[in-house]
Nucleic acid binder design. Structure first.
Length: 686
DNA sequence: TGAGCTCTAGGCTAT
DNA sequence: CTAGAGCTCA
């Protein structure tokens, strides 16, 4: 096996592990992904049934990549039935596969937008309760989700999410006062979810884990399905995910990989106890370590190690480069986002023409999706091809949801959100009329077929048209691509009109992509559920499905712009980390919360360790100057300790070389010359 | 009742 | 920049 020669001793020991359960603690760049791939290949080569191996990762992209690479390393067709999924999509698949066991097969998976819509409806219908609270519907959902993911009670979840974990008397009093009202609203939300056969993201995990915990029949069925469970990014699993995994300790062999220094999802309830307490929690288990870094040059690891050393948490980790020395990282001070973006574009074009690097050798990382919009504007203008990872999901775009609403009501006639969306799509039907039509359909409880009801409830030609459309789509149930086609034929005119402002430029092109996506699913339920969980990759602003669907090498050569959270597992020759400024690292949201600050430190650590050869860190000159002034103590005595907490304060000499670009517009290519206007004209002061 | 307009406030990270 | 509130007109 050719993979074997590429493994070091530690990796090989993990890959060939013959015991029951294993946790591999693998620092950044130590070959974590390679090890999990080799493990899967090893198991298959040694007689394991690939259909009984399940790989679990955090993003669909990571899952696909691992599966593809395992298959590529095996003789043809050997690993065809190997599957990889996210926790969520795996649960969704199980729910569809065993409709009787989980009893939720024709349920509709709803995304955060739908959840918010539902919570708003609940808040509206309980306005007496809601008006007493100073909490927004989104916060109610956050509390609800946090409580379910962390298994903490409502009081604790409110304290942590709404009151930043405070424990003083006033806080206590307020929580006690509001809790009953929050409870009423959350219960009402739950009830509505059940009535309309909805599963939110957390429900997917809960439905499966509850069955596994309480029903021996479920454990028996799944033990026939599974021999090996391979879990990536173990440090980012939360208590709910642990609860889902733990029944499998008796059912199959666990092989988990993770790195506590890269735990960056605590806002979602991730708990690295799942890593630290692995040995105590899992009988018959062992823990191995991978320590040699193959990715980066020593200079890149020096600054990464330095960042981690500064933490009050002892990660017991110091990465050593196998590759040796290289370039000293560059710390670039810029005066604004446009200058930063233009400098980045210059750097990339220079590397492309002078240094024989490809666009795809560049990875640009940012804390938030939002921050990269300036950069994207500059890349488009300067014709630098790029893809973005992270951000809004493809199926969450308004025009896509319009079309999918029809598929959703075919899948689940109780889906009120989809009914309202579908009905109000048509001219002359607004929310009020849509609610009435929907009430008729739901009250009928499936006695009459839906096209007949629609025709009766909507007068004239429109009623016939809508009923026929519903009918036509329903007939193709099972062929998801065909359903999308029929829906698009009937709705494209309306869509073009509704989104006329940017239809041609932005939206129209999404529908062929939607069809491709739909074709890759074998059932409507999977498409609606999993499609939602699919991260859309965007190429110069337009969605693409995956790398493999691109034809030429030229199309595959593009810069990657990603949020740090979406960049886990990625690496690149040149890595540019944007805006590592005060108030950003750590983020202004994290101040006065030690855990949050430390999480931000790990976020930066993940970003820095993506670089193979060249690391460039940018930051804003003005915000650096601001923290050094420190001369404006605020009125309430809250001394700003930004300078203390800012991660790059007191960075030792030699760890980076600094460069500062001033307000010199000559370095900003294509900067428009400001027009001179006369604001004093048109006014007679006499 | 529906549709289209303007104005304002608030914006992280993710399945 | 975007969602949503509030307004006007048909």
């Amino acid at each position: 096996m050719h993979l074997k020669e590429e493994l070091n001793k530690q990796q090989l020991k993990a890959v060939e592990f013959a015991g029951k359960h294993l946790l591999v603690l693998a620092g950044a760049g130590t070959g974590k992904t390679r090890t999990i791939i080799a493990r899967a290949a090893y198991l298959i080569e040694n007689g394991a049934n690939p259909s009984k191996i399940q790989i679990l990762t955090f993003t669909k992209k990571a899952a696909n990549e691992i599966v593809e690479r395992v298959k590529a390393s095996l003789p043809q067709s050997n690993g065809r039935s190997l599957s990889g999924a996210t926790f969520h999509s795996w649960c969704n698949q199980l729910i569809i596969k065993y409709p009787n066991l989980f009893g939720a097969a024709s349920y509709t998976v709803i995304d955060p937008d739908d959840q918010l819509g539902l919570m708003k409806m609940v808040s509206g219908s309980h306005s007496d309760v809601y008006s007493k609270l100073r909490i927004k519907p989104q916060q109610l959902l956050d509390v609800y989700s946090y409580a379910r993911n962390t298994k903490k009670n409502l009081t604790e979840s409110i304290r942590i999410l709404i009151y930043k974990g405070k424990e003083d008397k006033d806080t206590e009093y307020e929580i006690t006062a509001m809790k009953p009202n929050v409870e009423i609203l959350l219960r009402a939300y739950q009830k509505k979810k059940m009535e309309q056969r909805y599963l939110d993201y957390d429900d997917l995990l809960l439905v499966v884990s509850t069955q596994l915990k309480t029903n021996p029949e479920a454990r028996k069925l799944l033990s026939q399905d599974l021999d090996y469970l391979l879990v990536d990014e173990m440090q980012d699993t939360n208590p709910l995910q642990w609860e889902l995994l733990s029944p499998f300790i008796d059912i199959c062999n666990l092989f988990c990989v993770g790195d506590d220094a890269q735990s960056i999802y605590s806002f979602r309830g991730a708990d690295f106890k799942n890593v630290h307490q692995f040995k105590e929690r899992v009988p018959n288990s062992e823990v191995f370590k991978l320590e040699k870094n193959y990715r980066s040059t020593q200079e890149i690891l020096d600054i990464s190690n330095w960042l981690l050393e500064k933490s009050p948490i002892d990660y017991k980790k110091e990465l050593q480069s196998v590759r040796g020395d290289g370039e000293v990282p560059l710390l670039l001070n810029v005066s604004d986002e446009w200058q930063e973006a233009n400098w980045v574009a210059d750097e990339i074009l220079k590397n492309y023409t002078d240094e024989d690097r490809r666009f795809s050798d560049h990875l640009i990382l940012s804390r938030s999706q939002y921050y990269t919009k300036t950069l994207q504007a500059v890349f488009i203008r300067r014709k630098i091809p790029y893809v973005t990872y992270g951000g809004r999901k493809f199926l969450q775009a308004a025009h896509i949801k319009d079309l999918v609403s029809l598929l959703r009501i075919v899948n689940n006639p109780y889906d009120e959100i989809a009914w309202v969306r579908f009905l109000t799509f048509w001219e002359g039907i607004g929310e009020v009329r849509a609610s009435r039509i929907m009430a008729v359909i739901i009250a009928d409880e499936g006695k009459t077929d839906i096209p007949t009801l629609l025709q009766g409830a909507i007068p004239g030609k429109d009623g016939i048209k809508i009923a026929e459309l519903y009918n036509a789509v329903q007939k193709e149930k099972g062929k998801v691509g065909k359903m999308v086609d029929i829906a698009y034929d009937a709705m494209s005119l309306g869509l073009a009109f509704r989104y006329r402002k940017d239809w041609i430029e932005k939206r129209k092109g999404d529908f062929p992509v939607l069809k491709l996506l739909a074709n890759s699913y074998s059932s409507l339920g999977e498409f609606i559920g999993e499609g939602l969980l699919d991260n859309a990759e965007k190429m110069n602003g337009a969605p693409v499905l995956s790398e493999s669907q691109l034809e030429t090498d030229e199309e595959k050569d593009h810069v990657i712009i990603s949020t740090i959270h979406s960049a886990k597992g990625l690496e690149a020759d040149v890595c540019i980390v944007l805006n590592v400024s005060p108030k950003s690292f750590p983020s202004a949201w994290s101040l006065d919360d030690v855990d949050a600050i430390e999480e931000d430190r790990r976020v930066l650590y993940v970003a820095l360790t993506r670089a193979k050869n060249r690391l460039i860190i940018t930051r804003n000159t003005a915000s650096i100057a601001a923290i050094h002034k420190k001369s404006i103590p605020s009125n309430n005595g809250q001394q700003s300790d930004d300078a203390e907490t800012y991660f790059l304060t007191a960075i030792p000499d030699g760890l980076v070389r600094q460069e500062t670009i001033g307000h010199d517009f000559k370095t900003v290519k294509d900067a428009p010359e400001p027009n001179k206007i006369d604001l004093s004209s048109g006014m007679d002061f006499s």
